[in-house]
């Protein structure tokens, strides 16, 4: 199959049952996408599929054919999210971090006003789990990284 990942095309031979996360990690070496539960709850495996956050442990690689996949390695050099996460201590062990970054990248692209309302922001962040930080830093980083004019 041919996968479009981070703007590049990759020819991959993989069994149809393989999850997108496994193909990204094992076949393409993109190990920034982590697996925390492999059953769709924790969100550490979040990637963007045509700009939408999806859980790559629940998507088969073959389902991604014909769509644009973006992983943490594909965030733009000048994307403000990684720096904001570091600056606001939005990570400790860092295992959940790529998932939160991709969740937020997708959400901010869709509607940057999501950070303006505490309830909406928490509802968004509640899609993913972090066991280390207590989320305060993640909330703050999300606000700082949202575009100023929206």
């Amino acid at each position: 199959m041919e996968l479009d990942v981070n703007g590049a095309r990759h020819e991959v031979t993989a069994e149809p049952r393989r999850a997108l996360a496994d193909v990204l990690r094992d076949d393409l070496g993109l190990t920034g996408t982590h697996l925390g539960c492999e059953h769709g709850v924790c969100g550490t495996c979040t990637v963007l599929l045509d700009g939408e956050p999806v859980r790559s442990c629940l998507v088969l690689a073959v389902q991604a054919v014909g769509h644009e996949v973006r992983t943490v390695e594909g965030l733009a050099e000048d994307d403000p999210l990684p720096g904001a996460f570091a600056e606001h201590h939005a990570l400790q062990c860092g295992f959940c971090t790529p998932g939160f970054l991709m969740l937020l990248r997708g959400a901010l692209d869709e509607d940057p006003t999501v950070v303006d309302d505490d309830g909406r922001l928490d509802a968004l962040l509640a899609s993913n789990l972090c066991r280390c930080t207590g989320y305060e830093g993640i909330r703050n980083a999300a606000k700082v990284a949202a575009p100023r004019e929206h």
């Binding site: 190990t31 920034g32 996408t33 697996l35 390695e73 570091a86 860092g94 295992f95 970054l101």
Partner: peptide, 13 residues
């Protein structure tokens, strides 16, 4: 943190 926020962490997996 700059590694971990760019997907360049190296966990056992």
């Amino acid at each position: 943190d700059d590694r971990l926020t760019r997907g360049r962490g190296r966990y056992t997996a």
